[in-house]
Amino acid sequence: MDLFFQQVLNGLTLGGVYCLVALGLTLVYGVLHVPNFAHGAFYMAGAFVSFHLMTAWGWPYWLAMLGSAACVALLAVLAERLVFHPLRHASPLHPMIAAIGVLLFLEAAAQAIWGADFQRMQSPYTGIVDLAGVTAPVQRLLIIGAAFALVVIVHLFLTRTVTGSTIVAMAQTREGAALVGINANRVAMLTFALSGVLAAVAATLYAPINLVYPAMGHLVITKAFVIIILGGMGSVPGAIAGGLIIGLAESFGAFYVSDHYKDIIAFTLLVVILSLRPQGLFPNAAR
């Protein structure tokens, strides 16, 4: 039974990280209808900026996370202004390819600045807690706690504040939002900034138990896409539920099926679910 709870803990850790990444991706999709392939590069940039702030400038962990969130938010807004804004009237194919261009550029830039090597990020939280037989590294508990706190904050922001509601309104109908005087440019920038913050925080939380390298965003972003397809693209509750489902499925799959093939599990799950239900798990979402 202890082993079972161990897997639940691991699944929640993964799920928390996936939730944050998928949340940013789904918000951007909801507002701009762009599958932002560059989101994985934002995630990678977030980890590298934190890493740099901590090792080269000696900033403490949490301050580095804030600094990295601010940097990546700025990066995301720049991408929106320079790349996606000029393409808002183009065919659906073109913003997708432009996003790939941004992704390739950011990865090459990270490699040019920090090199292609794997880096290890130190965290001040290296202890291990024993919870009734389940050993839990503090960093994992921290990820779970911080990720879910952030998800709740984002949810409150979207539902309880006027600024947040403008994002939801834009996602529901563009024309309707414009009619009631919502500034589409402002909302687009705000959404990209928010997605950048979420990606940077997720990366900084997860990096200490993983590694930092230029291609680190690939698998995470692809899994985030799986999550938002399962949850319905543009749906916030869908992203959270999907993130947890994939996180737990991977953790249990790695333990009970095969550790060797654990990265395939998410994709196989997607293929199986979409073969049986082309409308996804949450058919109410716009498609």
Binding site: V83, A98, G101, V102, L106, A108, A112
Partner: peptide
């Protein structure tokens, strides 16, 4: 570094 921006 060159081709990414060119693509965009």
């Amino acid at each position: 570094l060159v081709f990414g921006p060119i693509l965009v």
